Each structure stands twice: as structure tokens, then as C-alpha cells.
Amino acid sequence: MSIQHFRVALIPFFAAFCLPVFAHPETLVKVKDAEDQLGARVGYIELDLNSGKILESFRPEERFPMMSTFKVLLCGAVLSRVDAGQEQLGRRIHYSQNDLVEYSPVTEKHLTDGMTVRELCSAAITMSDNTAANLLLTTIGGPKELTAFLHNMGDHVTRLDRWEPELNEAIPNDERDTTMPAAMATTLRKLLTGELLTLASRQQLIDWMEADKVAGPLLRSALPAGWFIADKSGAGERGSRGIIAALGPDGKPSRIVVIYTTGSQATMDERNRQIAEIGASLIKHW
């Protein structure tokens, strides 16, 4: 067993022997301040990774656009098919120029040779490549099948209805392509620590998230040296922004954090800054 596999296998073990965790309302004060600064709703939840206990939450059962955070769930569904012998990570998928959609920095470079399922998941999570996500959605049967996968996990809230990039439209009061912070946090925890996926697939999923290259201005910008984070960000229309993450000190994750916002007129930089400040408060009061 590799060191990384050992780390993920012992996530519940280490967490069980940690000192009790206590909620700190100071972080919620910052979440509410972010709402004021952005002029928009902000949803927040913080779960203990081992027990699933909610440590703090704000608007945990209000719907927010998922945006690209759905790509972690998508690759979880792909990995479940791999575990069941219905898919192979090494299978190569070929596609054409007509398949390319807006923001496809990886797939646009491989029109000639195609990409493997493993490479597509890596591109979808680490670079948020939209064509990679659409190609992977095709392998599982489309958005409705991802929703069905989530329902089978016990998540009857999260739903995907459309493809990239239309799913980022974020129309107010439109339930399409949305989740709730509580539902997303619980589902992410199941994917990373539950028995739904094999140990190898859980490790692969967290490795992809740990290698995320496009979430630097968010929670990662607030992390002290030595902290662990595996995350996936999302951005959408109407001032929408979000991030889902597993993080913790001492090089291992111990909490799940989900943050979503929508309806702001603020710039992307300002949305990023507010999420980073929430992260800084979380870490300060850990």
C-alpha cells in the first residue's frame, strides 16, 4: 500500500482519535458579512469528516447552483462504474471539434489522439474542462443518470439537468442544476469515506481534487503551510461562485467545507476574496 493510499485508508482512524471539535460562531459572522459585502445569498456548511456531524452552517438547506462543483460527483459516478466493471479508466475516447464547448483548455489539445477516461476526469476536476465533463456525462448516460446515481446514494436534493455550459445559467428560483450545502457536503463525505467506492477509487477521487489547479484564489489562499486540501470550485452566471473541499491540518483532511453564493453584482475577484476570507476565519478558529 502506498503512503497516499495509507493516508486515505486511515482518515477515519486518525479522526477518531482527534480531540473533540467545537464550532466557532466567528466564522458564521464572516459568512454573514460576506453576504453584506456581496449583496447576495451565501450558503455555508462545515462537517466533521469522521462523524458527519454538522459543526457550523448557514442557509444549509437553500438551493444554490452547483456550477462546476458537480464534476466531482460526476467522476465519482464514473469511478463507481469502474468498480462495477462497467468502465475502464484506460479506455480512450475520441471526439471532434464539434464536441468542444466553451472553456476546454485540455480537451482542445487532444482532438487528434483523444483522451482516456482517467485523463478526462483529471481534466474535468483539476482544470474544470467543460468538454471533458460533457464527454464523461455521455459515458454514464447524461445528466439524468448522474441525478439517479445521487438518488441511489441517498441524495434526493442534488440534481443535474443540463450539460456544460448551460448548467451554469443560475436563474433565480430555478431548481435545475442545483444542490443544497448540506446535501453536497453529505454526498461528498460519502464519496470520500464511505463504502460506495473502493479504496482505490476513493484515493483516485481525492487525488484529482488535491491536484486542483484553478481554485488557488479561494480556500487555498488562506491555508497555512502543512495543511491538506482537496477541492473543486465552480463559477456561473449572475454572480455565482462555489467551492467544495476536504481539508485539515497535519497533512490530512478532517472536515468537509461547502460554500456557495449566487445573485451578486460583485466582480469575480471580490467573490473570490470573500470566500478566501471565510476560509481564513475557519482556519483561525479551527
Rank of each mutant, 00 (worst) to 15 (best):
G141V: 04
Y44K: 00
L160G: 04
M180I: 12
E164H: 01
E270W: 07
R176M: 10
E175Q: 14
G76C: 06
A34F: 09
L197I: 08
F6R: 09
V214W: 05
Q37L: 13
H24F: 10
N130W: 00
G248K: 02
H285C: 11
T187Q: 05
T187K: 01
E164N: 00
R118G: 15
I125N: 03
D161S: 07
D207F: 10
L223M: 11
V72P: 10
A132K: 00
M153P: 01
E87S: 06
D212P: 05
P217D: 14
M153H: 10
L218R: 02
P217G: 09
R202P: 01
Q4K: 12
V101L: 08
G236C: 03
G226Q: 09
L199I: 15
T179V: 02
A246Q: 05
E61H: 14
F14T: 10
A132P: 00
E277D: 11
D155Q: 02
K109D: 10
I206E: 09
L100W: 05
E237I: 10
D250W: 10
L135C: 06
T69W: 00
M66T: 06
A9C: 12
L192R: 01
T138E: 15
L47F: 07
G39L: 11
A170L: 08
T138Y: 13
A148V: 13
L223D: 01
D269F: 11
M209I: 02
P60K: 15
I140D: 02
L188H: 04
A15P: 07
G43Y: 00
I45N: 03
S264K: 05
G234L: 01
L136P: 00
S104A: 08
G52E: 07
D212I: 02
G154C: 06
R81W: 06
A182S: 12
T107H: 01
L136W: 00
K213V: 11
K284I: 11
R159D: 06
D155G: 01
R202N: 06
E61Q: 14
I229S: 03
S233D: 00
I93G: 02
H94G: 10
R273V: 10
T27K: 05
H156E: 10
R189P: 02
R273G: 12
L150R: 00
T267R: 12
S68N: 00
Q4Y: 14
G248W: 02
E270K: 13
T139F: 06
L223C: 13
F70Y: 05
D83W: 02
L150F: 10
K30S: 10
A170T: 08
T131N: 04
L150T: 08
D269T: 11
N173D: 14
D174T: 05
R238D: 07
T116A: 07
D83P: 02
V117G: 02
M66C: 07
V214Y: 05
G141T: 05
T193G: 15
N152V: 10
P224G: 07
G39I: 09
E277H: 08
A123M: 03
S221W: 09
N130K: 00
L199F: 11
V31K: 00
T69L: 02
D33P: 01
P12F: 12
G39E: 15
